[in-house]
Nucleic acid binder design. Structure first.
Lengths: 368, 368
DNA sequence: ACTGCCGTAGAAAGCGTTTTCCATACGTTT
DNA sequence: AAACGTATGGAAAACGCTTTCTACGGCAGT
């Protein structure tokens, strides 16, 4: 059973600010001022205090500090799912950026569950986060209204609620996707498939639109049969690839709305004996760490989690400190060419290897 | 610049427990009791209070609550590196288990940096975590002493400081590794390589010892040239595989101390045109999600992050609540057979496919 | 009707900080 | 030498909650 509150308090109170004050023979106010580096405290006093702190091993209670000062020093980060390989990198970047800017972070993952999302937000409010970055895939309007009504600085990715008091990170999907399509077109592909994310998501729609636009620019016909809607999962990638294989005319290249989907595509190709990139070129999106580990290493469109994290923290910081009410921040994307893209089948025979875009055309397993 | 403390306080104080008390026309004590479900509060009163809470949208300040009650309700989790694919699953499991048990969690990652580890611990102490699980690879003695001296419940994995007041999660590496070796032996392998982790780590030593033991049990000669020391990274896996390829006699199978290393092995094999599993069998360790996504899907030894997380939370809970000072918890490991293991080269021709251990022997790319 | 006991709610004293306000001591100016 | 700033440290009031202690009202027992 839980210990009594009294007991708990006793145990903790052994190492107060009071203890430090007593030891240094000053008042607790001076100790507090010393710790917080208030300039009015005399150097001699300060030394006495620091010595006492070190001798005692005193560590201030940050919750009491927050209560006293009215500032929690924390910003929150809400992600979709920590086990989705895109997010750990984002979290890491966010944490680094936050520390750099003097904040601590509070991480919550929604697991795509509105109930859990509700919990996350409650948690962040309870802990008095000074700002929150919602870097999830889907967004649930009512919850954001709830958050925004608390007058807490907010950052969204792609698109948030249309309110004047939130910041938005605009990701330039079009740039990377255009590069990807041009890359494929330059290799000679004319039949390019696209596996989108769930089209209920704004980001998925944007990516599809960018693809259609880029394809059009390159003068390539966008066969509707080659555009299938996935769900950003590995299994979804497998299913979508199956549909693409059933098409009356198969595409020679597939672009995917995220890397995990691309892994599914690679997997299905492997299952049916299609060689990548010889028989099929594949491009992913997100450039997760796994991309360069895959066999073959995956050509992907990079959306830097570090950039996103930095932009998010910067937006939050400006909003909190400078009362900057709203800003848009741009995040760029660009193509990273690896080994999952090559000439379409048949084209290779006519060309010298040096003309391949891949700088080191290594033999695929099938050729070994 | 930061807002003045006064301002901050003002802004927040709009929605106190006092506001609720006023609205419900009761004392703040009654509001507190209602929220904490103290049974002595009359149902009628309680309803009045809940109504007021809902109408106002009141959310209690959890830090103030912690200060008042002497319990923070938080347990800490320290991991090595969030971008290492083993940890997100562990974190997820830990979070779920913690929520289940009424705790919130505080995550810290050390990034293998002692400085950062120091920061982590400071953070956890500042926030008054009620217990801490140190589920990292390496451990730094002095820091733990520091932690343990604070009299805070602690859980370590594998081996912690030898103190009577900490719990330890003992992972039974031997079981899974024996299964792996037996699996390879049953397939006919007699030349089995082993890529260990850095031998400064206790866990790496245990795994190597378990391997040597298992090999011995199976009556297989353990050629020293086939045991190389890796570093648990992808690049390390590649380097180790290079060394194995340079051996005077090449092994026909390789066991790895973790999956990421195995990915490096797979990669190097791909580079030099060795087909897995036809030319080389590979077994990983950890069974991270990526394992089943790889091409070919990786046979691996499963060390369930969920089991570890549950055991850690359970140990912490018992220690915190029941004052159980020390316990050992067992965590098992077991082999998961996928498609990166098969008969050694040449052996297959003599046998019918049905005798392969793999239930669905799918053609590798090379055969397609 | 008086005492005593519950059940229940309010008052008030913390919890460990920060911060405002005030007091002191010292050096400077006239 | 008196008056006055100017540093600087201490006392005490917050901060928003929990919890102990106390008080009140009603009911049963005598």
């Amino acid at each position: 059973m839980p210990k009594s509150a009294q007991e708990n308090k006793k145990r903790r109170s052994l190492l107060d600010i009071r203890a430090v004050a007593a030891r240094a023979k000053v008042s607790i106010a001076t100790v507090s001022r010393t710790i917080n580096r208030v300039p009015t405290v005399n150097a001699k006093m300060a030394k006495r205090v620091w010595d006492a702190i070190n001798e005692l091993g005193y560590i201030p209670d940050i919750q009491a500090r927050a209560l006293g000062s009215g500032r929690s020093g924390m910003i929150g980060l809400v992600v979709s799912e920590i086990t989705n390989p895109f997010f750990p990198e984002l979290i890491q970047g966010f944490e680094d950026a936050a520390i750099e800017n003097g904040y601590e972070i509070l991480i919550s993952s929604t697991n795509y569950d509105p109930k859990r999302m509700e919990l996350c937000i409650r948690r962040l409010l309870q802990r008095k986060a000074e700002g929150v970055a919602i870097l999830t895939f889907g967004i649930e309007q009512p919850l954001f209204e709830k958050l925004a009504d608390r007058n807490i600085p907010l950052v969204f990715v792609d698109a948030g609620p249309d309110r004047p008091d939130v910041s938005v990170l605009k990701i330039d999907y079009a740039h990377g996707i255009r590069q990807g399509v041009q890359h494929l077109a330059a290799l000679g592909h004319r039949k390019i498939g696209f596996i989108s994310g769930p089209l209920t998501l704004h980001s998925a729609q944007s990516r599809l639109a960018a693809f259609l636009n880029a394809v059009d620019e390159c003068g390539i016909h966008a066969e509707p049969e080659w555009q299938v809607e996935g769900d950003h999962t590995f299994e979804g990638g497998i299913r979508c690839m199956e549909r693409l294989l059933d098409a009356s005319m198969r595409p020679t290249a597939v672009m995917c709305s995220n890397d995990v989907t691309a892994l599914g595509v690679l997997h299905k190709a492997y299952r049916v004996g299609l060689r990548v990139p010889d028989d099929l070129s594949v491009i992913g999106f997100d450039n997760i760490q796994m991309a360069k580990v895959m066999i073959p290493p995956l050509t992907s469109i990079r959306m830097s989690p570090i950039d996103i994290a930095n932009a998010a923290v910067k937006a939050l910081k400006e909003h909190i400190e400078a009362d900057h009410p709203r800003r848009e921040y741009k995040v760029d994307t660009c193509l990273v060419v690896r080994e999952s893209t090559a000439f379409p089948p048949g084209a290779m025979d006519d060309l010298k290897p040096s003309q391949r875009s891949d700088p080191k055309p290594l033999p695929s397993i099938a050729k070994g």
